[in-house]
Write a protein that binds this DNA or RNA. Sequence first.
DNA 1: CTGAAAGCGCTTACAG
DNA 2: CTGAAAGCGCTTACAG
Lengths: 339, 339
Amino acid sequence: MAVTIYDIAREAEVSIATVSRVFNKNPNVSVKAREKVLKIAKAMGYHPQAMAQGLARKKTKLITAIVPVLSNYFFTEVLDGIQDGMIDVDYDLNIYNVRTTDDIPGQVDYLLKRGMAEGYLIISVHLPEKKWKQFRNYQLPIVLIDEYSSEFDSVSVDSIEGAYNATEYLIKSDYQRIAMITAYHEAKPAQDRILGYRRALEDNSRIVDETLIFSGDDMDRDGFTERNGYEAMLKLLKTDLLPDACFCNSDIQALGAIKAMQDANTFIPLIGFDDIRFSELLGLTTMKQPMYDMGKLAIEKLLCRLNTPGSDVSHTVFSPEMIIRSSSSIDIHQEETGM
Amino acid sequence: MAVTIYDIAREAEVSIATVSRVFNKNPNVSVKAREKVLKIAKAMGYHPQAMAQGLARKKTKLITAIVPVLSNYFFTEVLDGIQDGMIDVDYDLNIYNVRTTDDIPGQVDYLLKRGMAEGYLIISVHLPEKKWKQFRNYQLPIVLIDEYSSEFDSVSVDSIEGAYNATEYLIKSDYQRIAMITAYHEAKPAQDRILGYRRALEDNSRIVDETLIFSGDDMDRDGFTERNGYEAMLKLLKTDLLPDACFCNSDIQALGAIKAMQDANTFIPLIGFDDIRFSELLGLTTMKQPMYDMGKLAIEKLLCRLNTPGSDVSHTVFSPEMIIRSSSSIDIHQEETGM
DNA sequence: CTGAAAGCGCTTACAG
DNA sequence: CTGAAAGCGCTTACAG
């Protein structure tokens, strides 16, 4: 149905090899032949087919980004970095969204084995080390983002440290009952952030009060939603002895938490995690993840590995940077509009 | 490097045809042969290669969703619908993000011509009808989402009608100076919503006052951002004769606009457009787009076209549904916390 | 139930 | 500069 290289060759009265050379920008083609081929190809709407090229070249010029959820600021920011890192590079990027309701390792395995792409960026997919070891055997160029395995290059952020610093900041600010809003307890970032929260309290001789750890019931997107934060804050506000500060698992949840406080006409100082775009407007103090830079670095590592296979595995761990705004301080808010 | 069908055939002492049959679930294989092949394939980690299969079958079992921006609620909701519509179907979905800074028609053309996918879902890509006509010649199964062309199946929402109804609601509520917050003037939805706003005013014998149409300066994502809404509201609040109601181009901008009003300790009734997840929590009155349903219907149309080519082009236009919450009424807000 | 063979649409040494 | 030919890893009538 579609027009092939044979059609062009016939019309242009050259061999398919010549047509192929023209499209591969091989200099060994006479100007005359080149122009004729190009003209006819244009007229017939010819373009080489990716599948056939991939098979013949054994290179697909494709990179696949594997992600569990698209609808989240973290991912879109990372993706921006990835895309900017791919400008001027002869690779296409496509995104594959694994369904979290299904068997995740199985889906990743499938993607890796069918060999559509030359390289893979795997984002926020948490798997047992055993699985990574298995994938290592495939000898594919893979870079992990927001996840660590000794088997592959990785770019991540130290969530534990970020949570630790956020909590410690609240401690040093002399808050006494520091609550935490968490998310789905099996999500890796949620686990790490709780851990950092706990450690900071312990290291500062505070008692970890489990009743001060809240979560909403909405576990869509692992609980990284406004609704979850809203629900969590509602629960928090119902406690007898109200916390006087709160470390929130993510900015998106903080957004919901703030709304809940507004509705209740109250305010508790709050620190988020991520620094999504809206946080600056909101005046939300947060632990900034360098999402864009993470994406950019990850694609650089991958391209590097594509060019020179066999180099050593490298890991980059960013430290979240504390961005202090108004939400973490009670004073500013008393002067303001209640927000 | 990777293990091929030949390796399995050799080890299993059968022909490659038999191996192929096993993986294609062809019943005409003896139990004995099937088990042997499966066992060896598993041991050697074999999986058919997508490129080779695609070439041999002339079917790729792949659907590509083409989108200009990922980072937007509209798209992620649509995608949810698409994915749910693909459960139990033997197609993979991959997402291709065209870069809006580059030549968009060129990128779409490239994707279509290289033939990676069997069918395409093109989301929120606005192109001149001439281009669509050209693409029609490729005879590919394509469904348009959030865009209309007579050449292809489409699923969209009547933005003009939505904006009209929102504006008329404010008129009927007896507001006198009804402002509008718009976005990038070349974005199709922004154009349509302004048009609906204008028509509603005219049809109700109101004068269209161009100075009441505001936009922020942040044109990232075509101005569909919190920041843009925030900036627009700041401008609005600086006008001498303050508007007493506002129709806002999108919920995400409304979010920023509300924040701006909070910061200024003032409130103007507001109607948004989209009904994103946070809107319910915010109490934002809005024109709901059935994003999930749009995605689901679109993939159904595409699958249908894949199964029975040549059927007539069909267009579905949803009407936005008005969801009335507290933000469109001044009364409720005066009793509340200033939000 | 099984295998030999042709074919999918390209690329790429190789020989000229 | 050009073409004939082999090969990429599969699928699928066809014949048995």
